[in-house]
Structures are given as structure tokens and as C-alpha cells.
Design a protein around this nucleic acid. Structure first.
Lengths: 222, 222
DNA sequence: TATTCAATACCCCAAACGGGGTAAACTAAG
DNA sequence: CTTAGTTTACCCCGTTTGGGGTATTGAATA
């Protein structure tokens, strides 16, 4: 069975290296490769709308121009919870590992893993596993056992490149306020609130308040 | 300054004891006393709609007929985050204490506290404090330091006396589905989905999907 | 048996929401 | 000085949601 995957990687040479490596494995088909989280999410939306193939697995870099791979994962999982995400990155700090898993990634590998390991990890992921090295597994256990690092920050920072005003409006909406009520509280026109929300939806790649609330809570914008 | 409070207590003799005790303190005015969480929430909604006085502080029992005081607190905080809640109960298990605090209660006293302590705790609560006995404070620290008891159950059980079908529909809505999509997935009419949601809203005392999503996540109906 | 409850489905209607525009005023950065 | 970004505000449109009903069926229970 051929597994369709997508890459999110901004470094062109690494991108080429991945594509070359995967070309030797016929069980893997790379559908597309995006250089940023935003472009990746747009590509997914477009394919979804046009009825084109979607990947079963996404190999996601963390450090990217624009939104992080962690936020991109959060947004992807909101609209496509069935697509599996494996982080492939140079970072191995507890913080980013835990944030990735909380965002919905199921695997976590380092960039220097040999191609065979990455390919077999993709298979493991589809089989329902959670591929990662022993070293990373140990850090995850540590992360779970240190509650101070879990509390008060469900994920990382605000993220998604939102402006102050946008965050302010999100907080009110998440707390159950309508556009009209939010407008009254901030003493601006309801049209303005709507404009802000439209921009927020574009930035976060969501299409409803329910999804906004879910992601906002996960990211701790409570 | 007179502080307006409300009581939620089903035991009639305890109810009378509280009312009698508070009558000796002119800084406390008991607006009303409800024998169940549902009746309390309805009373709050009615007063809010009619422009009548709302309490600044609610003394909440946990064990109640119908929904628990913890769920009543969760629902109250969703619509009125400024109303302070102090649990007054016979329970002192870590589980219920933590659940109460997660639901939004700021104080936690035992029913055998002398009236002066309760009255001064109300003042402390309004001043921004978190009144509780040393014994309970110690249990809270323990609760925070035991992550196994935090994970996978943000609060207690489903709660709110929801039926299986209602829970099923809530899960879909919280995951971003519209009424129509939910109806298609469950192979029922969108009218039926709406009927269920109307019933859920009544049970949970919310009036929007955003609030539903928030409470559902807090209670782990994810 | 009678009654209650869960689940189903429809009616009506007004308000809220989501997405597509355009555009002005102001600030900050190049 | 020009460009980019933020905040403000309006237009259009169709869809979704929330709240008020009523009503039938089947299962469980008093």
C-alpha cells in the first residue's frame, strides 16, 4: 500500500534531501511540500475543496517562517483530525516536544535520523503507533511528571501572529460574547469586530467560532 | 458595604441555620436560597433578564439533587464570571476540592465552620482572596503535585444529566461540525439535532455553541 | 396500565454568523 | 517618501443558529 505524505520544510536543501530519500521507497508518495505552515494549511484547504488527494501523514518541521509547525499542527488537527503528524526537527527540548504532542502530533523524530527510520516511522504512525527515539520518549515521561510545566500553558505562546486587538476580541468571543456584545464592550462598530474575526479566521485557518474556541483554549488564550 | 449573597443548599434545616446565622450580620444580605443547582441557575437567569439584583457571592453546596454544585459553578461562571463562588460542603477529598477550583470556585469551606468564619470568608473572597482552611490548602497543593489525577479528567464525569445521544451530538458539535453535518453523520434529521441541542442548552444553562464548547472541554467531553 | 423519558421530526421567526468585497486613517519601518 | 500593517467601518449575500412551539414512537418504570 502506498502512503501519501506531505512535507512542511522551509530549508530548500533539506527539502531536496527528503524528496530524494523518499524517492527510493516506493511505499511512500510525496503529494506536495510546503515551505511554511500557512502555505501548507492553504494547500490542504484547496485540495479538500477540490476533492484532490489529501496526505495520510505530514512530516512537519517546527521552526518555520510565519507560524510554527506546532501551530500549523493545531490548526490541521482541528479540520482534519485523521491526518497523522510527525514532527521532524532539530529541537529536542522538553517544552517543544510536549507542545507538539499537545497540538496533536503523534510522532517526533530528529532530522538526522536515517531515511529508513523515517520511512518505517511513517508506517508505524499509520498503524497507530507513536514513533520516537528512546531519548525523546524519556523526555516525554519527564514532561508528564513535571506538572509545573503543564499548568497555565496548555501549549506555547499566543502564536498565529495575532495582533493585540485581535487577541482582545478572541478572548471576548471565547467567553461567550456575540459580535454585537463584543462591539459594545470595546466601543467599536460590530462591522469592525466582524472584520477582525474574518482576519483571525484567515490567520488561524478556521471557519467557525467553535473551532476558534477550541484552539484558543488549547493555546491558553483563555 | 452590604454584600449580596445567594445560597445553594438542599437540606432545609441547614438552609435555615445559614439564614439565621447570617441574620446577625448586617454586612450580609441573602438575596435568595435555592435547593438545587438547576433552580439556582434559573433564578440567576431570571434575575438577570428582569434586571433584578444579582449576588456578588454564592455559597454552594456540592451534593445536591440533580446536577452537582460543581457543575452549577461551571455553568454560572460561564455566564457570570464575576460572581464569586465559595463551596460549603462536608466533603474534603482532593478530587472534589480540585474539581471545584477547576470549575471556578475561589473558596472552599467545611459546613462546620463557625458563622464568623463564613462571614469573614465572604469578605475575603470579595477582596480577591481565596478563603480556605489550612487543611484544605494542603490538599490543594497535593492535588497540583499529583499529575495523574489531573490528566484525562479536567473535571469530574460527563455530568449535567446528559443522555448518550446528547453526548454524541455534543462531541460532534465541539469538533466543529454544524447541525447539518452532524445530522448527516448520525443519519437523522437536522431538526432532531436542533431539538437535542435545545435540550442540552437547557440542561447546561448555556445559550451558544461557544459556551458549549468551553464547558465541554473543561469537563473533558472532548 | 399509566406515565415518564429518550429520540425522532416538523412548524415559525429573528438574530447571529461566515465570506466576499472596498476603503479611510494612522503608525511603523524601509 | 512609500510601503506594510493595524484598526476602523461599511456594502453585499446566503447560511447557521437559537428559541418558541407541537407531536409521534418506543422503552422503561412506577
Amino acid at each position: 500500500m502506498v502512503t501519501k505524505i506531505a512535507l512542511v520544510e522551509d530549508n530548500p536543501s533539506l527539502q531536496r534531501r527528503f524528496l530524494l530519500n523518499f524517492s527510493f521507497f516506493e511505499e511512500i508518495e510525496v503529494l506536495f511540500c510546503s515551505p511554511s505552515g500557512e502555505q501548507f494549511l492553504s494547500e490542504i484547504e484547496e485540495r479538500n475543496d477540490n476533492g484532490h488527494d489529501l496526505p495520510s501523514v505530514v512530516l512537519m518541521d517546527i521552526e518555520l517562517p510565519g507560524i510554527t509547525g506546532i501551530d500549523a499542527t493545531l490548526a490541521l488537527k482541528e479540520s482534519h483530525p485523521d491526518i497523522e503528524v510527525m514532527m521532524i526537527t532539530v529541537f529536542e527540548d522538553e517544552e517543544r516536544i510536549m507542545d507538539s504532542l499537545r497540538s496533536g502530533a503523534s510522532g517526533y523524530l530528529l532530522k538526522d535520523e536515517p531515511p529508513e527510520v523515517i520511512v518505517s516511522s511513517v508506517a508505524e504512525l499509520i498503524a497507530g503507533g507513536a514513533p520516537m527515539t528512546a531519548k525523546i520518549a524519556r523526555k516525554i515521561i519527564a514532561g508528564i511528571q513535571s506538572p509545573e510545566k503543564n499548568r497555565d500553558k496548555p501549549s506555547s505562546k499566543p502564536g498565529f501572529d495575532l495582533s493585540e486587538r485581535e487577541l482582545e476580541i478572541i478572548k471576548l468571543l471565547v467567553n461567550g460574547k456575540s459580535y454585537t456584545q463584543t462591539a459594545e464592550i470595546l466601543i467599536i462598530s460590530p462591522h469592525t469586530v466582524k472584520t477582525h474575526i474574518k482576519n483571525v479566521y484567515k490567520k488561524m485557518h478556521v471557519h467557525s467560532k467553535a473551532s476558534l474556541v477550541k484552539i484558543a483554549i488549547k493555546k491558553g488564550i483563555i
